[in-house]
């Protein structure tokens, strides 16, 4: 049950996991900096919790808003226990279809944004002697499929960064966890961008993916938020947590296939550094 009140900063609180997580943390008596590009969308929720809630404008692609939000959190709350990099969005497009601009824009939000927020928070986290950084990745950051390669690339990047940071920041008492949610009814699917120019060559693959997505059961995001609450601030949190039983199965299948492929090509791999 709720130990001492903790302080949070959560990005992307206008909807989805960010909003729900902020609400649940406030309910349990924690102090939360709710951030979004447009903080006006947070006022009604924050208003119910008085001084425990702090609404701040934070656009992860605008470093000055990152700096000022973090400065405000440390000034107002004195410390930051749990930083949640939640802001992000999806892209369904063949690599060949997506425009350069939309690909790079997605990387700015899904990868460089969290990186910038983490870098801005680290001096404060190190100075206070600890903290927990939670990066919301995706099952698409552990597995992939046709037409989501660019989105997956941004989330694989985030997973790689998280894993390294978990080691790099351990000496400072700072924990790092990446969360890989499967399909949840967060509104994420509705916010997925599609290719600027669709190519006929990929029509069938799009149709197949659309069918799969239409049949998918999107779980209640409250369950994923409980999973995040269960590990937030833990003494020994996982470095990578999968949220959702279907997502676990998907990752297990991919890991088994990778193991099998390693075994199949073992002789070629082993010979590579034996010349």
């Amino acid at each position: 049950m709720a130990d001492a009140a903790r302080t949070w900063l959560i990005t992307g609180c206008s909807s989805g996991f960010g909003r729900l997580l902020a609400q649940r943390a406030l309910e349990r008596g924690d102090r939360v900096a709710l951030t979004a590009r447009n903080p006006a969308m947070l006022a009604a929720l924050a208003g119910q919790y008085g001084n425990a809630a702090l609404c701040l404008p934070l656009d992860v692609t605008r470093p000055e808003t990152i700096r000022s939000a973090l400065g405000e959190v440390f000034e107002r709350f004195g410390r930051l226990d749990i930083l949640v990099n939640n802001a992000g969005y999806g892209l369904q497009a063949a690599a060949e279809e997506a425009s350069d601009a939309q690909t790079r824009a997605m990387f700015e939000v899904n990868f460089f944004g969290p990186l910038d927020v983490i870098r801005a928070a680290l001096p404060g986290l190190r100075a206070q002697g600890g903290g927990h950084i939670i990066n919301i990745s995706s099952v698409g950051g552990r597995t992939t499929a046709p037409l989501i390669g660019l989105y997956s690339a941004s989330k694989f990047a985030l997973e790689g960064l998280s894993l390294s940071l978990a080691m790099e920041l351990a000496p400072f008492g700072i924990k790092v966890t990446s969360i890989a949610p499967g399909a949840f009814a967060t509104g994420f699917a509705g916010a997925v961008q599609s290719a600027g120019a669709k190519l006929d060559a990929y029509r069938q693959q799009h149709a197949m993916l659309d069918t799969i997505l239409a049949d998918l059961h999107f779980a209640d995001p409250a369950g994923c938020v409980e999973a995040i609450l269960a590990i937030a601030g833990a003494d020994e949190p996982p470095r990578q947590l999968i949220a959702g039983s279907h997502a676990v199965s998907a990752v297990e299948a991919v890991m088994a296939a990778q193991q099998a492929e390693i075994a199949k090509w073992r002789a070629v791999s082993d010979a590579a550094d034996q010349q």
């Binding site: 997506a98 910038d116 983490i118």
Partner: peptide, 26 residues
């Protein structure tokens, strides 16, 4: 470099080099 100390231009540069390969495929 440690994440905290790497200059953002060098990190972005590395990613842009990778993304450039994507443009190449495209």
């Amino acid at each position: 470099q440690a994440v905290a100390e790497a200059a953002m231009p060098s990190v972005r540069g590395m990613w842009l080099a990778c993304a450039g390969q994507r443009s190449y495929h495209q």
